[in-house]
């Protein structure tokens, strides 16, 4: 718009500032809140390098260097939590792509637009119910004495399974209930991509003699591959996010071996045991690795799909 030809640097600055002043003012409140509650706490990470005592405050506590990291890595619960986190998260990531893709392909084969829309609206409803309530529903349904699933199991096999108190079953319960709650939400994205498939491509394929199956395999599926690639690359950043809200609300002492994740460990050390330094170090470990994973994932998403955050 305005070119700065013939003006001094100061005049140019004043000119752009006069033009953009309102924009800077608009950003003032968001920025203030962001700095106060996101950036200032980052300074608080120093308590991870101190032996934090509430009575001495952040600055009065003594420095201990990397001692807290050593303590954390030597805790037997840490390796276990890291392993559980990655296993649970990777299963969730893979199924959270496979299930919605398959389901959107099936839904796309339905002719009746009305039914399709109703089903589509119903399947993402669970996404909006809190994990507190969902966890309680899961607990109710799977309850060994009165739950529907076990009542049926007992009729069929004569045995009941204590799903939430059993190390073999706990992870599958987490993964399946998470997919069940969230698959409908991702399905929307794939359905939108499917709606964009060029009908003339399908017609051409039909004239060439391709049946329904061949058309799906060679025309429909390839046209949503870019979306699948984008969603997969973006989910790389979640490898250390096993889902705190869900796991915390289902976790119990019987299944710590397979169910304790990094986030629940951070919570337990920080809030339950008031060991602020160890908790901070554990979350610092998690955030640092997550940051690297997210940078990788955004880079890949940009390279493969031209995806940009802003």
């Amino acid at each position: 718009m305005t070119t700065g030809a013939g003006l001094t640097a100061w005049q140019r600055f004043r000119k752009t500032f006069k033009r953009d002043g309102a924009l800077h003012v608009m950003l003032l409140l968001p920025l203030l809140l962001l700095i106060l509650y996101h950036y200032v706490p980052m300074a608080g990470i120093i308590i991870g390098f101190k032996n934090y005592k509430g009575t001495k405050g952040i600055f009065g506590s003594t420095w201990v260097g990397f001692e807290n990291f050593q303590t954390l890595f030597q805790t037997s619960g840490f390796a276990r939590a890291l392993r559980n986190t990655v296993i649970i998260a990777v299963w969730k990531i893979v199924l959270q792509i496979a299930v919605p893709v398959s389901f959107s392909l099936l839904l796309n084969e339905m002719n009746s637009q009305g039914t399709k829309r109703v089903i589509q609206s119903i399947i993402y409803l669970p996404h909006f119910i809190s994990w507190v309530i969902m966890a309680s529903i899961v607990g109710t349904i799977l309850s060994p004495a009165t739950g529907v699933v076990n009542v049926l199991l007992e009729k069929i096999t004569g045995n009941t399974i204590f799903f939430l108190g059993n190390n073999t079953w706990f992870r599958p319960v987490l993964i399946i209930s998470s997919i069940w709650k969230n698959f409908g939400y991702s399905t929307i994205v794939y359905l939108a991509a499917l709606a964009g498939v060029d009908p003339s491509l399908l017609e051409v394929a039909e004239i060439d003699g391709a049946g329904y199956w061949k058309r799906m395999l060679h025309v429909t599926l390839p046209s949503i591959v870019p979306t699948i690639i984008l969603m997969s690359t973006l989910s790389i950043g979640n490898i250390l996010n096993a889902g705190f809200d869900q796991v915390y609300n289902l976790l119990n002492s019987a299944v710590m071996e397979t169910g304790d994740i990094l986030d629940t460990m951070v919570y337990r050390y920080g809030i339950t045991n008031s060991n602020y330094s160890i908790s901070t170090v554990a979350s610092l470990f998690k955030s640092s690795i997550s940051m690297i994973l997210m940078i990788i994932s955004y880079r890949l998403a940009f390279r493969f799909s031209g995806y940009r955050l802003f």
Binding site: L36, P41, M42, G44, I47, S287, M294, I295, F310
Partner: peptide, 28 residues
């Protein structure tokens, strides 16, 4: 159209990439 946009964008992006964690946020 908006000189300085990129600086703001990075401030927002970085807050997404890295969080201070439970306890430091609690203390603030």
């Amino acid at each position: 159209e908006f000189a300085g946009r990129q600086v703001y964008v990075w401030i927002f992006i970085f807050s997404m990439l890295f969080g201070a964690g439970l306890i430091p946020t609690y203390l603030i």
